[in-house]
Simulated scan of single mutants.
Amino acid sequence: MSYEVRGTLHNTREEALSALVGAYVYPDIAPDRDEALEALDTPGDTADELIADWGGDLGPGETPATAIEIADHIRGYRYAILKAVGCPLFQYREDSGHTEDLEATDLASAIDEARELLRDGDWPTGGKTTYVSAAVIDPYGGAHGVEVAIHPEEPECTESEHDWQSPHDLLGGLEENPGVWGKGGGVVVTEVCRHCGAYRITDTWDQSQGPEPVETIQYREADDASTAWVRANQAPSVLRSLIEDKGHDRVLSALRDFEDDPDAWIDEDDMDIKVEGEWLRGERFADLVDRLDDDLRWPY
């Protein structure tokens, strides 16, 4: 069995119908996008016009195509028709009504392209992760939801980048899991930057954006507690630099004078200071290192 359309033989009725529609909707010489779009918008009218202009002849001895059969074929081959005339196959659509044609020729690529458009958008975060969504409209009118998380920008750091830490003495919680607190089916994790003292809070069970929990990130400025922790955290490296520059004996002599303790000691391995038999910690340690650093470097 063979089918003939415009002098060309086809093996199946489907191929013959495609050739019949193609000859009308996008002729070889000059594919017409407007004709194609109109055909897809009103397949019934297009089928009636095609029957009137071309007839439904599919070759000698074959049952002619009907307008209903042609209209159904147009609907079923929407993707192929759009592609043949170079029309956009997928569309990006936001809830606001904003739309853009996508360059992708398959659904997976269209979804990736839509995600990039969402990420490039100017979305207010309010200092916390915001989830934004859009839809990819396929050639058949089906909508495929796309969602991405827009995280707030990290605050500026005193160094080139943040170094997020979880010190138990500052953040609390369990010693083996500091800064972590249970919440619903998730946790809230707080970290602090060892350079600038800013906080990063990750909530894995945030329900502020709807009934379904999502993961969000937000930042909080340094406070007195984190600033003190940063100073104490940086003091050992300052002390080491001072000893390398001025010498251990000179720094130790100054320490003993400052504290009026002839037995004061500096542990060069751990960069700890002992005064009156007690190893110093925290802000007192940082203050003492600052005093040594300022005194021994002045007036140079």
Rank of each mutant, 00 (worst) to 15 (best):
296 L>G: 08
115 R>D: 00
10 H>N: 14
266 I>V: 12
217 I>P: 04
261 D>N: 13
140 Y>H: 05
289 V>W: 09
198 A>D: 14
266 I>S: 12
4 E>T: 10
286 A>Q: 05
141 G>Y: 02
113 E>M: 01
173 G>M: 01
91 Q>I: 03
19 A>I: 13
259 E>S: 11
231 R>S: 15
17 L>T: 04
263 D>Q: 14
152 P>T: 03
116 E>D: 03
265 W>Q: 09
65 A>Y: 04
157 C>P: 06
199 Y>Q: 06
141 G>A: 03
146 V>H: 05
32 D>S: 13
193 C>T: 07
255 L>F: 10
160 S>W: 14
42 T>F: 14
99 T>S: 06
226 S>A: 14
265 W>F: 12
57 D>K: 07
41 D>H: 11
41 D>G: 05
149 A>R: 02
163 D>C: 11
79 Y>F: 12
243 I>D: 01
298 W>F: 08
21 V>L: 14
33 R>P: 05
64 P>E: 06
34 D>Y: 05
41 D>Q: 15
261 D>P: 15
300 Y>A: 15
211 P>C: 06
89 L>I: 02
249 D>S: 11
117 L>Y: 02
273 I>Y: 12
3 Y>N: 11
109 S>A: 09
189 V>S: 09
220 R>P: 09
156 E>I: 02
183 K>E: 03
145 G>I: 01
76 G>H: 00
58 L>S: 13
121 G>N: 07
135 A>R: 12
262 P>R: 09
139 P>W: 02
10 H>L: 15
111 I>K: 08
262 P>N: 14
73 H>T: 00
249 D>T: 10
86 G>E: 00
204 T>F: 11
238 V>S: 15
167 P>V: 04
126 G>K: 04
130 T>G: 05
160 S>N: 07
81 I>F: 00
270 D>L: 15
125 T>D: 03
257 D>E: 14
159 E>T: 04
22 G>R: 11
18 S>Q: 11
199 Y>M: 03
132 V>R: 08
164 W>G: 06
239 L>K: 08
280 L>E: 08
51 I>W: 01
63 T>K: 09
247 G>H: 12
225 A>W: 05
165 Q>W: 14
2 S>F: 08
269 D>W: 15
66 T>G: 15
6 R>Y: 04
79 Y>N: 04
8 T>G: 13
214 V>N: 07
266 I>L: 12
241 S>R: 12
144 H>N: 06
196 C>L: 03
179 G>E: 01
177 N>I: 00
86 G>P: 01
211 P>M: 06
177 N>H: 02
20 L>M: 07
183 K>P: 01
28 D>E: 10
26 Y>K: 03
162 H>W: 10
215 E>Y: 04
35 E>V: 02
284 R>W: 13
88 P>T: 00
279 W>N: 10
98 H>W: 06
187 V>R: 11
26 Y>H: 15
78 R>E: 02
249 D>V: 10
293 D>I: 07
70 I>Y: 01
228 A>Y: 07
106 D>S: 07
147 E>M: 13
85 V>L: 13
221 E>M: 13
246 K>M: 13
126 G>D: 02
34 D>W: 05
260 D>K: 13
202 T>Q: 09
239 L>D: 02
18 S>R: 13
176 E>K: 11
142 G>W: 04
237 S>Y: 14
160 S>G: 05
93 R>K: 06
61 G>R: 12
